[in-house]
Amino acid sequence: MSTGYVFEDKIVEIEWLAQNLNSLAPDIRIIESNEDVLLYDTGHIPGAVHIDWRKDLQDPIIRDYISAEKFAELCSRNGITPNTTCIFYGDKSNWWACYALWAFELFGHKNSKILNGGRDKWIKLGLPLTKEKPSFEKTHYPVPSKRMDEEIRIFYNGVLDYLKTKGPLIDVRSPGEYSGELLHMPEYPQEGVLRGGHIPGAKSVPWKTAVKEDGTFKSIAELRDIYEKQAGLDPEKETVVYCRIGERSSHTWFVLKYLLGHKNVKNYDGSWTEWGNKVGAPIER
């Protein structure tokens, strides 16, 4: 059944995975990535490996991602090659799964997909979970020669320059964070900032407007209405998205880039924890 999404192959439906779980090709790897890093151990999709968004993807000292060498090691020990199709899923409507997918694409891994509905829908459908951790033969994953910073990412100074172009900027946080009423979401006190508000000119389009109650993505028509008609985004022009640390905005980045087919979408992963603490950074409320 066609969804109408521009890149339909970036979505895997849960029903398909459930039917084919015991006969998946060796070059397919299911990857669970959650905000709650302990969830995987309580039960996961049989055959799924765990990617811890903090321990596995982020450098423990500097605020950046792991090195290309460490990314290659991460893939190798999980039996992943550059040709492996990685199906990502997780909690909170795949918010963190999209973050992991974005990080993989940052290192040039293109064979990536999202399991529509994620962990919550899998469980609601009563599909099997296991606590058994799979073991895959270690592979050789070549160290990526280039990180895709220019293609899918933007840094603080780049955002400052971008503001001069009056290009669209999408704040995907909650309305309270956008307005400045909240310095951070109550459940994330460790990621608070000194000042509340939003980047000048940014429009508020909370990330969760893209998903239904069951965690699956809304229809192509609904998404076009949200992002193109209401927010005024042009598929042919550059768009920058941001949130707190780049995780919620990775979800919106995925929707814009792959479901709607926007040509140039960049994730400002420094986001509000950088901008709201940066000396001299312009802020609107």
Rank of each mutant, 00 (worst) to 15 (best):
T81H: 05
S249W: 14
K257E: 07
S179N: 12
N22V: 01
G118N: 01
N157C: 01
S174E: 13
E35K: 08
G276A: 07
G126T: 09
S250G: 02
A103S: 08
C98H: 00
G232T: 06
G43K: 05
A72H: 02
V193I: 13
L233F: 05
K146Q: 12
F104I: 12
W275F: 03
F136E: 00
T42G: 09
N264R: 15
N22C: 10
Y40Q: 11
E247I: 11
V265F: 07
P200H: 08
G246C: 13
E247R: 08
D149C: 03
Y89H: 13
Y5L: 14
S145L: 15
R244M: 14
L160A: 09
V49R: 01
F136M: 06
W16L: 04
A97W: 04
K110C: 14
D149F: 06
P82D: 13
G176S: 13
W95F: 13
A68C: 13
A25N: 15
L38H: 06
K263L: 00
N277A: 04
F107M: 04
Y188M: 12
V265P: 11
I170L: 03
E236L: 12
D234A: 12
A221D: 15
N78I: 00
T273Y: 00
H251A: 08
G43S: 05
F136V: 01
A48D: 06
K146W: 01
F7K: 07
K218M: 03
G280F: 12
K212G: 08
G126V: 13
G79R: 12
P189I: 09
Y242L: 00
R119A: 06
N20C: 06
A281E: 08
L17F: 04
H140G: 04
V6G: 05
Y178G: 00
Y89E: 07
P206G: 00
L57D: 02
K263Q: 12
T239C: 09
H251F: 07
C243E: 10
L125V: 04
S249P: 14
V279D: 15
L183P: 00
D161W: 07
I114W: 08
P175M: 05
P60K: 06
E213K: 11
P60Q: 05
F71V: 11
K257W: 02
K138P: 04
V240E: 04
L160V: 07
L183Y: 05
K278D: 00
G79E: 02
T139F: 15
P46E: 07
Y178S: 03
K124G: 13
Q230T: 11
W53H: 09
E177H: 09
V255Q: 09
E222C: 05
C75K: 08
Q230P: 07
Y5C: 15
L163P: 07
G4P: 11
K212Q: 11
L125Y: 11
D36W: 10
V211A: 13
